[in-house]
Design a protein around this nucleic acid. Sequence first.
DNA 1: CTGAAAGCGCTAACAG
DNA 2: CTGTTAGCGCTTTCAG
Lengths: 342, 342
Amino acid sequence: MTTQKELAKLAGVSAGTVSNVISGSTRVSEAARRKVLEAIRVLKYQPNLIARSLKTNRTNTLGIIVPDITIPFFPKIIRGAEAAARERGYFLIVLDSQRSHDLEIDMLGLLRQRVDGILLVTAGESKWSAERAAAIAAGPPVVCVDRLPVGLDTDTVCVDDSGAAELGVKHLLSLGHRQIAVITGPLTLRNEQERLRGYRRAMKAARLPTDSSLIWSASFDADDIHAVCQRGLLRQKPKPTALFATNGLTGMCALKSLYSLGFTTPGSIAFVTFDELIEEDFFQPRITSIVQPTYAIGHKAVEVLFDRIARVDNTEGISSIRLPATLVVRDSSRLQLAARPR
Amino acid sequence: MTTQKELAKLAGVSAGTVSNVISGSTRVSEAARRKVLEAIRVLKYQPNLIARSLKTNRTNTLGIIVPDITIPFFPKIIRGAEAAARERGYFLIVLDSQRSHDLEIDMLGLLRQRVDGILLVTAGESKWSAERAAAIAAGPPVVCVDRLPVGLDTDTVCVDDSGAAELGVKHLLSLGHRQIAVITGPLTLRNEQERLRGYRRAMKAARLPTDSSLIWSASFDADDIHAVCQRGLLRQKPKPTALFATNGLTGMCALKSLYSLGFTTPGSIAFVTFDELIEEDFFQPRITSIVQPTYAIGHKAVEVLFDRIARVDNTEGISSIRLPATLVVRDSSRLQLAARPR
DNA sequence: CTGAAAGCGCTAACAG
DNA sequence: CTGTTAGCGCTTTCAG
């Protein structure tokens, strides 16, 4: 590792001048600049970032904490975030909190010293304690992504949950469905609440009742979901002609459950889910879904983070960004009601 | 941020003693230690890692570069690696080279200053230039994972490709299949070569010929794969009763192709693939596959990396670790030959 | 415009 | 055992 001191010697100038050339902050004579640049080339100089960080207290690095990197949704967000970071010459560190709120807190602490800002997809469904929220506030700026924690007032970027859900339900309505059931994950999650709200709004706009029998509040647990589907599909009449799932995991499990109960899609029930379950068209039949703008979410979140970093120690003007989702129509919603006896 | 100097003042000792208490390297009197510990507690001191790094030239951080974080295989490896890193109090930085060899090289350069060692899943199928190999050798130790680059002599950790392929083919043999075709990705990749070798070995052990008509050398391109499948399945007799795919992507495409040609699995052809295509049992029918020990690979790779870091600048004794894969029998290989007319 | 010098926070000798 | 000291490599005053 060559140092600026060595450069200075070779270029015949002082270390300060070398630094000025490199940072470009101060004006330097053309002659000196050329000599230094030449020395840099010859010695293959690369600045020591650690030393620079120690001095400047900046790291040119961002961090992102996700609950589970093995869930396809998160890598896609990471992609967008990394791209945005790179555009600004920043580095992105990825951490996986393994769905543990405690670990997430640890990681926030670890990142604190290494990054200038943090993207957080929180693992905690629960509220943040005031103590923990304060600890966050003391560190580098945080932007919350996807999951919106309660008790933490940071900038946020996520999908327009209710609008997206509405989009999916409207699609089913446009196909003639009127008995549209919805299956949700845990309603303790804000996202789930909002998606349910979107369902309700769409139904209401179509002047349809939203009987409690159509609203299946489930969870992320397969057995639980199965029980809910069973109750909803078998013991009920009129049976729903369509099912909307508010998240990918619940939707996936519901789908399995549905098959096991002898239903098919789009054969006997139309099906639309929030989130792509699995790579687009490898699944048979291909599932109609609400696709989140994952890349855009990650990218935008980093932009918001940079904005926040720029006005340090200024808690003013918290932004809560909502990005629109897209409806991707595939096979599972192709149940033709007109052709069926009612 | 409180500093050791402030601790020293509060504890009424010198900065050096504070450092000694913290690092635990030198013996310190019980009285002094208690005072310092107390000061740490009161001031909520956290050591400045940047400063420490500048001094010690160590970062307590490892890096991993993967070609595409959105491919499920890599996050699983990352999981294992992170766990192993954490066990030793290390931090893991994840980078995505977006399948670009050039970007990968850039990233190696960026990591160089920030980590003590690197796990690399190279994106390059091609050989490494001597120049680039030399650049690697100059930086922190690198352990290559999964893909084995040509022209780079580092420690390596990956699955036992040929053994794993052999396992899959033997499974088909044990079910009575004799006409077993194999479809591969690009044979420029070492892994693919070795997997094909495993196929050959299994067939040979069963005293079966490996006609060139059974060996379908394809790629990662869907159209290409489709053409190869078409040629193999339609124009040929006797038709193979089983197909073994040497990687997940090629297998997935082959499967689609197979369906589009009117074949089903296990209905008309048994199918086994290397790698899980997609989350285990969401796929219908569930696919029998060779599952790589992803977590173990990541974990082991970090262990090997630590070993290497321990004996710095000692290129001796390069280890090439091969971990065994597992056969997971599901539906797609359940074609019962005995029940069919031959 | 340039050189000298201070110091970011920490560690690691080295005397006392 | 403890205090003093000298840097790690860089940025940033501040005189000249």
